[in-house]
Design a protein around this nucleic acid. Structure first.
Length: 473
RNA sequence: CGGGACGUGGCGCAGUCUGGGAGCGCACCGGCUUUGGGAGCCGGGGGUCGCGAGUUCGAAUCUCGCCGUCCCGACCA
C-alpha cells in the first residue's frame, strides 16, 4: 500500500535542508513568523522546549545560580562602553528610536544579550568580597537581526537562558565557566538530549564579542555538519571594568571583578531535529520527550478497547511515564501511527481487540522501529526500563555516527576534504592564518580546540592541542 | 549583503515560453462503506495567481520595481 506513494518527507539523503523544513511542517513544530527571521513555535515543539528549560534550569540551580529578570530595552550608550562588544553586536542590533509617537532622546536597543545591563546592576549590588560570587541567570527572549535566518537555528528573535556571574578571582571565574559547560550543558546534552557533544575552546576569531575565552559544546548533525549547541564565556575583567563592577577584598583593597556569561537557546531544538531525525521524522529521546508513550487505540467496536487503553495510560502515569491516549478511531490506524512517528514519540503502544483478547499490547519503538508484544499486566512495569533502553540506544547511535564521520588528519588539505562530510581533527599548530583562510574557502571553520583526549585545553601547551574542523550551521 | 532558484486555496505542484476558462494531488467539510501502517466511493467549501505600477480590448502569463522563501558564499546561540 505504501509502495508507489510519495514519501511523507523529502529523504534526508536527497536534500537535507528540505527534509528539515518538511519535519518542521509535518511534525507541527514551527512556522515562519510574519516578520522575516521570526518564528512561531507550535505547541508540540514548545512542550519539548519546556522540557529543555526544566532540565537545564534544574542544573543551573544546582550550580548555585539564581533566576532574575532584566529589561528587554537597553540604553544604546551601554553598548558603547565595551569596545569589542559594540563592534561585534552593532550589525545585528534592533534599535528603537520612537516611543509613544515621539523620537527618543536616546535610542534603546532590543537586547541581543544582557552583559551590559546586568553589568550595570552588578556594579550596584557588589560592594564586598562577601557579595561574591554573584551567580545570576535569566530566561528571556533576545533579538539579533539575522541576514540569513533558519527556523530554530538562526532566527532574529529566539528564546534562551543567559547566565551572568561575577567572581573575586580569575581562577574562580574560569572554574565556574567550565563547571557550567560540563555540569549543566554537556550533562544535559549527553544525558537528556542523547547528543554526544564535543567540548572545547573557540579560537580567538570565533570568540564571543568581549570575551577572553569562549568554551563551546559542539554537536554533529545528521549530515555531518557541526552545530554550536551552547557556549560559556570567560569575560575577564572587560565588562567589569566597563561597568565598574568592583569590590573591597578582605584586606580592604579595592579590586575589579572577573565575570562570566553562558547560554543555550531554542537553537537546541534545531540540533535535536537534525541530530536524531530520520526519514520518518523527528525522534525525541525519552528523557526529553513531553510525550514518552502514546497509547494508540487501533480500533474499537464498543468502547471496551478505549476503556482498557485509558487504564493503561493511567497505569503508565503512575509508573512515572508521560503517556497520552490516542483514541481517535475515526481516523485510520496507519495515519495516526505515521503522525506519532513524525512527532518522534519514543514508544507507541498499540491496543486493539485482538491484543486484548490475548492479554497483550504491541509496543513499537520509534528509535529502531522494533515491535514487540508485551502482556498488559507487565506494561507499566516494563515501560520505564524500555524508555531507558531507547535513550541509551539513541545516544549510542549518535555517538557511532559521529565517530564514523570524524577523521584524524595531519594536513590542512585533508582537513578541508574530510570536512565536506564530517569532522576533521588535526594538530592546531598546522593552522596558521593562511590555513584558516584556505579552510574558509571550503566553508570549513575551526569548531573548537581540545586536548588530544577531548578535554578543554586548559593550561595544556598549545602545540599539543588539536583543532576540530567542520562545516557548520 | 553578493550569486542562483522559486513565489498559483493549508501543503505540494501544473498552467507562464506562444495573453482570452484558475486547475490537479493531498489536506478540509458532509454521507455511506471501512479500520492491525498514510482508507475507498459519492457530494461539497475554500484562491487578491507574493505586492505595486505599466503594456494591452483583455495579464497567473509580457515589462519594471519591491517583498518573501530556499540554496551557495561573508557573520552568530
Amino acid at each position: 500500500m505504501a509502495a508507489g506513494r510519495a514519501p511523507i518527507l523529502t529523504p534526508r539523503g536527497d536534500d537535507f535542508p528540505r527534509w528539515y523544513q518538511d519535519v518542521l511542517n509535518k511534525a507541527e513544530l514551527a512556522d515562519n513568523g510574519p516578520v522575516r527571521g521570526t518564528m512561531v513555535i507550535r505547541p508540540y515543539a514548545y512542550a519539548i522546549w519546556e522540557r529543555m528549560v526544566a532540565e537545564v534550569d534544574a542544573r543551573i540551580k544546582a550550580a548555585g545560580a539564581e533566576n532574575a529578570y532584566f529589561p528587554l530595552f537597553i540604553p544604546e550608550s551601554y553598548f558603547q562602553r565595551e569596545a569589542e562588544h559594540v563592534e561585534g553586536f552593532s550589525p545585528e542590533l534592533a534599535v528603537v528610536t520612537v516611543g509613544g509617537g515621539k523620537e527618543l532622546e536616546e535610542p534603546v536597543v532590543v537586547r541581543p544579550t544582557s552583559e551590559t545591563v546586568i553589568g550595570e546592576y552588578m556594579a550596584k549590588w557588589v560592594q564586598s568580597y562577601r557579595d561574591l560570587p554573584l551567580l545570576l541567570n535569566q530566561w528571556a527572549n533576545v533579538v539579533r537581526w539575522e541576514l540569513r535566518p533558519r527556523v530554530f537555528l538562526r532566527t532574529s528573535e529566539f528564546l534562551w537562558q543567559e547566565g551572568h556571574t561575577a567572581h573575586a578571582t580569575e581562577d574562580d571565574a574560569r572554574e565556574y565557566a567550565e563547571h557550567i559547560l560540563h555540569s549543566v550543558y554537556r550533562d544535559f546534552m549527553v544525558e537528556v538530549l542523547a547528543i554526544p557533544v564535543l567540548v572545547g575552546a573557540k579560537i580567538a576569531q570565533e570568540r564571543f564579542a568581549g570575551a577572553t575565552n569562549t568554551l563551546t559544546c559542539e554537536a554533529m548533525m545528521g549530515d555531518g555538519k557541526a552545530l554550536q549547541m551552547g557556549t560559556s564565556h570567560e569575560l575577564g575583567q572587560n565588562f567589569a571594568r566597563a561597568f565598574d563592577v568592583g569590590f573591597l577584598d578582605e584586606h580592604g583593597e579595592q579590586r575589579i571583578c572577573w565575570t562570566t556569561s553562558w547560554g543555550v537557546s531554542t537553537r537546541m531544538m534545531g540540533g535535536l531535529i537534525m541530530a536524531h531525525g530520520d526519514d520518518a521524522g523527528l525522534r525525541v529521546p525519552p528523557r526529553l520527550a513531553a510525550v514518552q508513550a502514546v497509547v494508540l487505540v487501533v480500533r474499537d467496536e464498543d468502547g471496551s478497547v478505549t476503556a482498557a487503553a485509558g487504564e493503561l495510560v493511567d497505569s503508565l502515569g503512575r509508573a512515572g511515564v508521560r503517556a497520552r491516549l490516542d483514541a481517535r478511531v475515526e481516523t485510520g490506524f496507519g495515519r495516526r501511527a505515521t503522525e506519532w512517528e513524525l512527532k518522534g514519540v519514543p514508544l507507541r503502544i498499540e491496543v486493539g481487540p485482538r491484543d486484548l483478547a490475548e492479554g497483550q499490547v504491541v509496543v513499537a519503538r520509534r528509535d529502531d522501529g522494533a515491535k514487540v508484544p508485551v502482556p498488559v499486566a507487565e506494561l507499566a512495569a516494563r515501560a520505564p526500563g524500555l524508555l531507558e533502553e531507547v535513550q541509551a540506544a539513541m545516544l549510542a547511535d549518535a555517538t557511532e555516527r559521529r565517530d564514523a564521520l570524524t577523521t584524524v588528519v595531519d594536513s590542512v588539505e585533508e582537513a578541508a576534504e574530510v570536512s565536506a562530510t564530517g569532522f576533521a581533527v588535526l594538530p592546531w599548530r598546522l593552522l596558521d592564518d593562511a590555513a584558516i583562510d584556505l579552510l574558509g574557502r571550503s566553508a570549513v571553520t575551526v569548531r573548537c580546540l581540545q586536548t588530544p583526549d577531548g578535554e578543554l585545553p586548559g593550561g595544556a601547551p598549545a602545540d599539543e592541542l588539536v583543532a576540530v574542523c567542520a562545516r557548520s550551521y
